[in-house]
Amino acid sequence: MPNGWMRLATGAASAGCAALLALIFFGRDLSGWSFDSTKIQNFKIVFLSIILEALPFLLIGVIISALLQAFLSDELVRKLTPRNPVAGVLFGSLLGIVLPLCECGMIPIVRRLIRKGMPAYIGMIYIVAGPIINPIVFGATLQAFRTNESLAYSRFYLAFIVSVALGFILYARMKKSPLKPEQDHHHSHHDHDHAHHGHAHGDTALKKLASAPAHVADEFFEMGKYLILGSVITALLQTLVARSSFAAVADHELLSHLFMMGFAYALSLCSTSDAFVAASFNNMFPPAALLSFLVLGPMLDLKNTLMMLAAFRKSFVLKFSLLIAALVLIGSILFDHLGFV
């Protein structure tokens, strides 16, 4: 069974690969710098501290997400969904409080809910608001900004305002389904649904509970890779780029917002852990720019764009993303001038 042996080598090979990656990073560290082991140690401290700090929150997030996936039926969600647009918008914005899924777990679920009859605009608001307006993210943000609580609260107010605004715009303007035409991935979806149905009927509560830990591990690995990427980039920035280099950007109002928004987009952090990264820029950027980072990141980032493109039409994703970015930018500048942050 040569194939099997090849796969057996995975473990050893991946260790080697990681070592190579590590070498690449350290090589980059060293080129152009005199050999300076303190830089590597600084990198290690910042890199690991973000991961260690975010792990508990990531775990809580994926555990709850896994439990919900196992226990909450689509039927129930659909029954609870209101038909009135105002109630619908509020429902979508606040659904995260009772359904605190991580953004990665959310997109496949929302896609299924929309297919099964949930109004699309509610689903889309939930994708946007859910990763911020939920108790886990609230706890993490308050922890990270204990010394600047007004920023922590502003994150939730602004997220709420932006998602309500988005909801009404979508309700008024979105005429056709944002989903990709069914036949596009009909085949793969068919397989998927099939497995689901066969599965669902025979399920006992005990079996569902037994499947939850498997989901935890799956989601942990799916989300964790973005957390590690975000930590690497942040740690490199912090150890290699002097604070004064940011000064030109950080002191300019519009640029500081745009920079932090672009940064949030590229980092693709899980919303349960991004507050700690934001806090690390606390004395470099004005709080209003951090607010842009904290609100935009969970609503819109590289990882979630990739996932949205898999489910929704390209033109819709583009317009939707630009709309979010504009609303967040205007909102956080307004918050700044009104003195909320």
Partner: peptide, 16 residues
């Protein structure tokens, strides 16, 4: 390998 990276750094790089 990507997940092993923080572990390798964590165990192999000395703390300072």
């Amino acid at each position: 390998g990507w997940f092993a990276l923080p572990l390798i750094i964590g165990y192999a790089v000395p703390d300072g």
